[in-house]
Design a binder for these strands. Structure first.
Lengths: 209, 209
DNA sequence: GACCGACTACTTGACGCCGGATATCAGCGT
DNA sequence: ACGCTGATATCCGGCGTCAAGTAGTCGGTC
């Protein structure tokens, strides 16, 4: 069990390291390759943070400028390559991300927290709308997945897509279930002691994530 | 169907509006109340962004300073109250969040994308670790939920907790399933045409979300 | 064959939000 | 007196977002 202190490295940083492990590239090419491979579906990508992240990877010594090219009068481009420490940190961070769930704050949680301020009928309709939207996304992603598998990709390299589909379908089912409970009156539409001016006074372990 | 342009309002902003709907408060009290009610489990809260968010809510006219208090030599505190437009925007944004899923970029997706750079045995162990961690979180949250229900809260006001538990359990099951497939060799540990230097050239609709 | 416009390649800069650290004072325990 | 903890707010550096800026390239037009 490695018990090292958690390194701070964004998903975008990871992706850069992975690409540079393949071959040296300049930042723009990194972005183009990520798009080509649909990595930007799962990792937030835009040019601003790309260059910024590349800088900070360089400062950390995980990548180094390998060469500067100048074609015609275009802006000079810097080609980076991965260092050994970069390779090491990549594997370490990937391992940590997989092994250790981290607290995330999805928007939908906030929506649910405040759902009781809406009427029951409205809420149930909105949930049904969400379920339909999720269904559409799921169908689209499934289609893409099938195509890619048919095109010679392995499940292993598309596992994040498989995961996203599973996640979305689970959410869709949960949302439908709740919408149904609301319309059937099985989810009582009444606030408890914590609502309105009533304040919760009891103590209970404030659980972390 | 309201077809208004999407307003930009963070979950923290929503939470502030909700609290001020109950009664006027000053920012520090907002934070304390959110903590008391465990809202910070689902909404990212820290003082920096709290004051910032309050400012921007004021600029938007959704809240207004109601009064300034000064006790002894302490910093002056400003008490805010909700306006009518604030009340309206709150309901609108909650509805939008519920009805419309939005693209999110969880860390775990990135971990999965790069999992194939680890060995099969390692990956499967790490996934099992994650499953255990998820199990622990799920147990803790379930316990809290039971306590709160027993304490007089309704399911309706705890629905986001119920949702989080369902989500975590679904992920736990998925992770275990994949770990099992790996150890049984059912998830072929081999990269396809998109790996290494091989570059993907085929076209396929770049699906959004 | 010279010019125009649209498109791609490539980077930088300005600006705003976020989170963590810090400052200040009160009250309380010892 | 001393030092903690709690109350209350602000500050600053980093990171992300968006958009502008400059060069080449390609396709068409008179």
């Amino acid at each position: 069990m490695t018990t090292e202190v958690s390194v701070d490295l964004s998903p975008l940083g990871l992706s850069i390291l992975e690409l540079l492990n393949e071959r040296p590239m300049h930042p723009y090419e990194l972005a183009a390759t990520m798009r080509e491979r649909h990595h930007d579906e799962f990792i937030r990508l835009n040019f601003g943070s790309l260059y910024h992240t590349v800088d900070s990877l360089e400062r950390a010594g995980w990548i180094v400028p390998a060469e500067k090219e100048k074609e015609g009068n275009r802006p000079e481009r810097t080609i980076y390559r991965l260092t050994d420490s970069g390779r090491a940190i990549f594997l370490q961070v990937v391992s940590e991300i997989i092994a250790q769930p981290r607290r995330e704050y999805p928007y939908f949680s906030a929506g649910l927290m405040f759902m009781h301020h809406l009427g029951a009928a409205t809420a149930s309709q909105l949930l049904e709308l969400r379920a339909q939207a999720l269904q559409a996304v799921s169908a689209k992603l499934s289609h893409i997945l099938d195509e890619l598998l048919a095109g010679g990709h392995t499940r292993l390299t598309l596992i994040e897509l498989e995961h996203k589909i599973a996640t979305i379908e689970a959410e869709r089912d949960w949302v439908r279930k709740i919408a149904k409970e609301i319309t059937e009156g099985k989810l009582e539409w009444r606030a408890g002691i914590d609502s309105g001016h009533e304040r919760l006074r009891r103590k209970h372990g404030a659980g972390a994530n």
